[in-house]
Amino acid sequence: MPKILPLFAKALTDSWRSTLGWAVGLTAACMLYLPLYPSIGGSAQMQDLINALPPEMTKALNYDQIASGPGYTQATMFGLLGFLLMSMASIGWGAAAVAGDEESGLLELTLAHSVTRAQVVLERALAMVVRIAFLSVLVFLVVLGLNGPSQLGIDVGHLTGAVLLFAALALFSGTAALFAGALTGRKMYAVAAGAAVAVLGYVFNAVGRQSPDVEWLLNLSPYHWAYGNSPVANGADWGAVAGLFGISAAFIVLGSLALRQRDVGV
């Protein structure tokens, strides 16, 4: 009996170890950062310290908003360590999905079986979406669990929107890596493309916030599209949610078209 979505099922089962690893990392990041809020973000001493820092630095790190619980969560977890971990996971998966598989010589044998190339890209992209969704839901639950004990005062609706953007932003860099990998067949190019999206997005945001002269950089930053209005504090910009998911979907479709056009394993 032909199974339904065999490549999807395999991609998920093959990656449970790495998914579990990232889950532990993200949970640990939440557990380390968030319980410290009452003693750091909310304290007057910490605020004095932050005021003493150069304003450029606090802006770059989004620390200008850490005086409130949602702002603190936004800046430390979603904006920094969580973003970093999720981007790394997503870019790794995106690069492995086609380019990594091709470079290791495995894709040739898979394609010799009864699958289409579009199917390979789409099913593996779907597996990536599911993994990112799993990690995002996990982060949602952990933050929600710490909300009361850590006196964060986050609105659940805002948190939902923020986690959606958190997922969308990771998916964006992951699908960029997937697309570059499907286009070139080189894992290095795939990782470079995904990392460029994530890192430049972060840098453009950090620099763009420094002065009105370079504010235009913010328009080029997916990071700013997602986090520009501090969604944990203020709720999601639904246009940004739709935009990020839309572009990610486009990357996936383009990736499947790119792989159909070229020789594999050369």
Binding site: L106, L109, A112, T116
Partner: peptide
């Protein structure tokens, strides 16, 4: 497409 490859068994020269 896929129906043809179902009728073929393939062993690559460099098996990974």
């Amino acid at each position: 497409g896929t129906s043809l490859r179902r009728r073929i068994g393939y062993l690559p020269g460099e098996l990974h």
